[in-house]
Computed example of a mutant assay.
Amino acid sequence: MGNERLKMMILAALFAALMGVGAQIIIPVPPVPFTAQTLVLPLMAIILGKRYGTLAAVLYVLLGTIGIPVFAGMKAGLGIIFGPTGGFILSYIPAAFLIGWIFEKGGGRTAAAVAATVVGAMFILLAGTVWLKYMGSLPWSGAFAGGMLPFIIPDLIKAGFAAVVGVLVRNRLASARLLPAALR
């Protein structure tokens, strides 16, 4: 039992690191850049489940908040969290839980994974856009145009890809008995 918990905590830390790597894969589009974080996040929530997927998201946000440069462009700190794009970053925590929860409630099927990742992607975009509007002092039209509209199609594609790959990886890990019994 203790070994399974330790194994999952290590996987959560690994996925937090992968989030940091994904943040550095950037297509710079002001005010919010395209990054691979929104591909890693649903993958980790599907593979690790709601509990450890959320732990990985919390760890990622905490690392960046305390000054480790894991956010896009090797940035970190409270200035990023309380800046215009901070809402996207903070939304990763509830989004990871939401994706994992929907997936688990859906019985771990691919259709549940697709639904979960799409809902998670839309949650991130909505939360981030609302934050962008207020923290960036933008009108709703500007926040929507800069924080949501350009990301809808790419994020839906990433969500579908993450759902299919996440279920495949999770099933392989489960069949190899590399996931705790509760996640199999």
Rank of each mutant, 00 (worst) to 15 (best):
A36C: 02
P42Y: 10
F71N: 07
M122H: 00
F103V: 02
L48P: 00
L125R: 13
F123P: 00
Q24L: 08
T54A: 02
G160P: 11
L6H: 02
I157D: 13
L125H: 07
L90V: 10
R172A: 14
L138D: 08
M8V: 08
A17K: 02
F97G: 03
M148K: 09
A112C: 08
L126A: 15
L138A: 07
F15G: 01
I102G: 11
G64W: 06
L179Q: 06
L168S: 15
L62C: 04
G53M: 12
A13E: 01
V29G: 00
P150Q: 04
A182P: 00
I157F: 08
M9Q: 13
A13L: 13
I89H: 05
V169K: 13
L98Q: 03
L62R: 00
G108M: 07
A115P: 00
G49V: 12
Y52H: 12
K105R: 15
A182T: 14
N3T: 14
V130L: 14
A76L: 06
P154R: 09
T38A: 12
V130H: 11
A96V: 10
A113F: 08
V167H: 12
G64V: 04
V164E: 09
G107R: 08
A36T: 01
P84H: 10
L18Q: 02
G142I: 13
W101V: 01
L183S: 07
L90Y: 01
A162Q: 05
G142V: 10
V58D: 04
K158Y: 07
G136L: 13
W101M: 14
M8T: 07
K158P: 08
P180W: 10
I10Q: 03
R177C: 01
V32D: 09
N171M: 04
P31A: 14
T129W: 12
A95L: 06
F34H: 02
E104N: 05
G83T: 11
K75L: 04
R51K: 15
A16Y: 01
I25H: 05
G142A: 15
T65E: 02
L43G: 08
G166S: 06
I66C: 08
K133P: 00
E104V: 08
G136H: 12
L138N: 03
A16L: 02
L126W: 10
T54S: 10
V21I: 15
G77S: 09
R184V: 00
G128R: 10
L98Y: 12
L62N: 00
A174K: 05
V118Q: 02
I152N: 09
T110E: 14
P154S: 11
P28F: 13
A12I: 07
Y134Q: 05
A174G: 10
M9C: 11
L126S: 15
L59D: 00
Y52Q: 07
I25E: 02
P84T: 15
G106D: 14
I81E: 07
P154I: 05
L125G: 05
R172K: 15
V165E: 00
K133W: 12
G120L: 07
I93G: 02
T110N: 09
V164Y: 11
L43D: 04
V32E: 06
G86C: 06
G100H: 12
I157T: 05
P139M: 13
A36Y: 01
L126H: 03
F144A: 15
L178T: 01
R177V: 00
G128T: 10
L59T: 14
G2M: 13
M44K: 06
A56N: 05
